[in-house]
Design a protein around this nucleic acid. Structure first.
Lengths: 197, 197
DNA sequence: AGCTGATATTAACAACTGTTCATATATAGT
DNA sequence: ACTATATATGAACAGTTGTTAATATCAGCT
């Protein structure tokens, strides 16, 4: 099964670089060091390779149930909770493998219906719900001003997504992301000042 | 020149649907109603067709100098200014042609270096600078709390971008965008409450 | 040693790609 | 009516694509 894993790893890199169409079966095989026909001993399709790679895209921070169970406790930390979320988000943003998966997502998002649906349910809604629950708790604890927790969650998450996209774009061309790196913290500071009581 | 315009129009639709690689010269020619070889009487390259389409992508609201000159006056309107910006942004988001161009941008952003550079300079920086200038003026007028105008601008713009992306994704699958449509106004309301004195 | 199953290779296929060429058609100016 | 120009066609090119078939290699099991 060593070969199968290598196929997936090299396919991931090529999909991230050239997209689904641009990453040909021959290119993948060449990077693995085998002929293209040998690929079909491990996967029935090019599509199956892609699905296998794409299925690992949506693994969000705080996704496991243990962390979710502790949410109500953690949310009472107020700004501390948001800061720790940002730390997680930053780690994901600058992780090389996750970065490749994010690139694949971005490239195929407008071309692949399944990916769009996963993005909406696994990424957007999952994060929105989690963060909005945290804000709801913070409101009950009178840590923050009242308002629609869902709106608040989107206001908190959208700048993170936009930052991640910018980081990804800069890194493709090997530009420095130092200036952007500090903006994550600036975002929490600004946001907390916006909602804190 | 009627044919040339039709080529550009049909190419735009196909690029928005299938991306650069997926939109073949033959597909474009077929939609126009001519053979693929006839295309080359109007353009030397497939690349030239794409560049011709792509060059029209970055036409931002408030881009003309007349409006910019009035900025300091308009910014003094405070929330009114932000609301009018949102109206413009919403119009652009739901405009069919602009939507197609936005899709092309999103698809090719991670594949095309020129597009990335244009996105950064023509879209991101241009909007950031304009809005941050407005916030700077509002600070001087004591309409809003003090802070880094650039950070504020990004916090204001990022949710708009994220909303636009969501709208675009939903419309590809012909889902309703009614719920999202109202979020533009909710964003201004939330944001103004966050910064108003 | 011989068999079996997994995995590799070589070769080929039909379809599609961007582009070019020689040639035809149609339009407009003299 | 004749000519020049712009635009169309049909056919062909060389290269790439995903996939398949027949065959070879190599491991472990009996």
């Amino acid at each position: 099964m060593h070969t199968k894993d290598k196929i997936l790893a090299e396919a991931m890199e090529l999909f991230a670089q050239f997209g689904y169409k641009g990453a040909s079966v021959r290119k993948i095989a060449a990077k693995v060091g085998i002929r293209e026909s040998a690929i079909y001993n491990h996967f029935t399709n090019k599509e199956e390779i892609f699905q296998s790679v794409a299925s690992t895209i949506f693994t969000t921070p705080f996704s496991d149930t243990k962390e979710s169970a502790m949410l109500s406790e953690r949310a009472k930390g107020g700004k501390k909770f948001l800061s720790s979320f940002i730390v997680q988000y930053k780690l994901v943003t600058f992780d090389k493998k996750k970065e490749h998966l994010f690139r694949i997502m971005m490239i195929e998002l407008l071309q692949n219906k399944r990916l769009r649906e996963s993005f909406m349910s696994e990424y957007h809604e999952k994060n929105s719900k989690l963060i909005s629950q945290a804000f709801f708790i913070m409101m009950q604890e009178d840590l923050i001003r009242s308002g629609d927790p869902m709106v608040m969650a989107n206001e908190f998450l959208a700048p993170l997504f936009y930052l991640r996209l910018q980081v990804t774009l800069l890194r493709i061309d090997e530009h420095s992301t130092a200036a952007l790196s500090t903006q994550f913290e600036k975002h929490v500071d600004f946001f907390w000042e916006s909602i804190a009581l």
